[in-house]
Amino acid sequence: MTVDDMLQVIPPVAVYLLTGVVIGLESLGIPLPGEIVLVSAALLSSRPEIDVDPLWVGVAATTGAVVGDSIGYAIGRRYGMPLFGWLGRRFPKHFGPGHVAVAERLFGRWGMGAVFFGRFVALLRIFAGPLAGALRMPYQKFLVANVAGGICWAGGTTAGVYYLGLVAETWLKRFSWVGLVVAVLAGLGVTLWMRRRTRSMVREAGGAAVVDGDGTAPGNVTP
C-alpha cells in the first residue's frame, strides 16, 4: 500500500478531532506540536483525492484554540503565579524561570495584544491562557483577544497551507510531493529560527530575573 492509499482511508472526522484536541491541549498549557498538526491537516485538505474539508480543519483548530485557552485561563486564575513555579520545577525545559519571565514581560507590555499575537508564537501559545488568568486579566478582554487570535491563526494558517498545496498540485502534477517537501522544509526553517530567537530571549530573561528577598525566584511556591 502506497502513502497515497493510506492517506485516502483516513476518516475526515479523525483528522478534525485530532487537530482540535492537540491544539486544545497545547492551548491549555501542555507543550504539544499544535502548529505541525494544523499544517499537516491543511495539507491533507488540499489533496483532491482525500475527503478532508479545509473549512472544518479551520473550525476544529479555532475551537480547540479557544476552548483550550479558556480552560488554561481558568486554571491560571485558580492557582495564580505559584502554578508556574510548580511547573518550572517539574518541566524546566518549557516552564523555567526564563520562559515565565519572557511571557510575563510581553503580557505586561502588550496586554490583550499578547493574547492575540501569542497564538502565532510557540512560547506564548502554551502560556497565554494560564498566564492571563494568573495575572487576573478580565475574562471579557481575554476572550475577545483569544477568539480573534484563534480565528486569524487557525483560519489564516489553514487557508495559506491549503492554497499552497493547490498550487503545488497544479504546477508539479505528478511531483506534487516535492512541493509538499519544500513547504515542510520552509516551515521547519521558520520554526527553527523562531525557536532559536525564543531561546535567546529566555536566556536573557533568565539572566536578568529578579530574585526576591528569601533568595528564590518569584512565584516559586507549590500551588
Rank of each mutant, 00 (worst) to 15 (best):
L188K: 09
A128M: 06
R119Y: 04
D212I: 10
L188W: 12
L185R: 07
L188R: 09
L185V: 14
S200V: 05
L180V: 15
H99L: 03
Y139L: 12
F120Y: 06
R136T: 05
T198G: 09
F127S: 03
V210S: 12
F175I: 03
A103W: 08
W110P: 05
L131P: 05
L106F: 07
V182I: 15
F91V: 10
V202S: 09
G85K: 03
A148T: 12
A168R: 09
G207L: 04
M194K: 13
V190L: 14
G108K: 05
W171Y: 15
A159N: 10
L166I: 08
L124F: 07
R199G: 07
T191V: 11
V167C: 12
L180C: 13
V161R: 06
G179S: 06
R119I: 00
A103M: 00
G111Y: 04
Y139N: 03
M112R: 13
F84R: 02
P92Q: 01
L131Q: 11
G118Q: 06
L123Q: 08
L123P: 05
A101P: 07
V202F: 10
A132T: 05
H94M: 02
R199E: 15
G213Q: 10
G108Q: 03
K93E: 08
A145G: 01
F91R: 12
M112Q: 14
G133A: 05
F142D: 02
G187Y: 11
R90F: 04
F117A: 10
F117V: 00
Y139W: 12
G207P: 08
I151V: 15
G189E: 04
G207S: 05
R125L: 02
R197L: 11
R174Y: 11
H94P: 00
W110L: 11
G206Q: 11
S176M: 13
W177P: 00
G98C: 09
G118H: 00
A134K: 02
F84N: 02
A128I: 08
A208I: 06
G150W: 07
W171P: 00
G150F: 00
F116R: 03
A183V: 13
V161L: 00
I151G: 02
L192G: 08
A103V: 01
T170C: 06
M137L: 06
R174W: 10
L185F: 14
L172E: 05
D214S: 11
V121M: 10
L185M: 14
P138Y: 01
H94I: 08
V210I: 10
R195H: 14
A114K: 01
F117I: 01
V184A: 15
